[in-house]
């Protein structure tokens, strides 16, 4: 079995305009891989090229150069799609069809045997909590309801790999909670998930890996824990140790007063002198301060990475 469910190598995409030689460069030499079994968050500001990448993976858009492999097959392989679930960025389906009919069409296209089809459709409708709307036409659905149907059609075939473009968009707080549960359940079943999102708190909660993209360039990719842990250290100062506090306060990046009257100061990793100074103080008076690796919030990490990048 392949190690990686998605392998993207040197992918570039230039959208050509009709009457101009210069197009829009949406992706520039992108290389990412997604290991089997992971939940991978694909992040980046608007226009970073997330949708473009995802559409190339689904062979809806042809890359200018480079190649993409899904489940070990080139992205243009038609049969491999039987093993993938996909949610497009703005799900739109034939308005005159009812939810159940639409899912039935999808099930047929996914080559689910006819004797299992009804059961599979009902199960998917149930999973996304849309069973009571199964007989209503899609044209009458709200944005979030369509999103739910979109998720339902993506999980119909019990896919090995889920590729979702902004699955949280348009969902209410309940919907977001349910969606996260669906993803966690899918991961337990062994499904790998690759999705783009702007809701960083949710990404932090469910993803084990991320990649950040800006203007078509990859800024970073890797395990979430490692990326966030590498960002600095926290120093907790015992209440009453004002001398230590005053000495360190000026160099700290951030300071938070603790409920017990002490302080938590955060320091960046990239200042060896400062780190040395903290270590020395710790040796001098071990009770005055406690050092721990700080885990940055994904949101802070995202802003820092995107703003520091010069692309």
């Amino acid at each position: 079995m392949e190690e990686n469910v998605i392998v993207i190598e040197g992918l570039s995409k230039n959208y050509k305009r009709w009457f101009s030689s210069k197009g829009t460069k949406a992706l520039d030499n992108l290389t990412i891989s997604v290991p089997r079994g992971s939940v991978f968050g694909f992040l980046g500001p608007n226009g970073a090229g997330k949708t473009t990448t995802i559409k190339i993976l689904m062979d809806l858009i042809k890359p200018t150069t480079g190649s993409a492999f899904v489940l070990g097959k080139p992205s243009y392989d038609v049969d491999v799609k039987k093993r993938i679930g996909f949610l497009p960025d703005s799900p739109a389906f034939s308005r005159q069809l009812t939810a159940r009919e639409f899912l039935n069409i999808c099930a047929k296209l996914l080559r689910i045997p006819s004797e299992q089809r009804n059961e599979t459709v009902e199960e998917a409708l149930h999973t996304v909590k849309m069973a009571e709307h199964a007989r209503e036409k899609l044209g009458s659905f709200s944005r979030g309801m369509l999103q739910r149907i979109g998720v339902a059609q993506a999980i119909l075939n019990k896919p090995e790999l889920l590729i979702l473009d902004e699955p949280l968009l348009g969902l209410d707080p309940y919907g977001r909670q349910e969606f996260k549960q669906i993803i966690i359940d899918q991961q337990k079943k062994g499904t790998s998930v690759f999705f783009s999102s702007h809701i960083l708190s949710d990404v932090e909660e469910i993803c084990d890996r991320i990649a950040i993209l800006k203007k078509g360039h990859l800024l970073c990719t890797g395990e979430l824990d490692k990326l966030l842990a590498a960002s600095g250290i926290n120093v907790v100062i015992t209440p009453g140790e004002d001398k230590v506090f005053k000495e360190l306060m000026t160099d700290a990046e951030g300071s938070v007063k603790n409920p017990d009257g002490g302080w938590t100061l955060s320091f960046p990793h990239n200042n060896p002198e400062l780190l040395k100074k903290i270590e020395d103080m710790k040796k001098e008076s071990p009770d005055a301060l406690a050092i721990s690796a700080s885990r940055e919030k994904l949101e802070d990490f995202f802003f820092r990475t995107v703003e520091n990048a010069n692309v």
Binding site: D59, V80, P88
Partner: peptide
Amino acid sequence: REGVASTLLSKPLG
């Protein structure tokens, strides 16, 4: 334009 086709074409459909 609306993306109905992309949903269908993301299935094993040439």
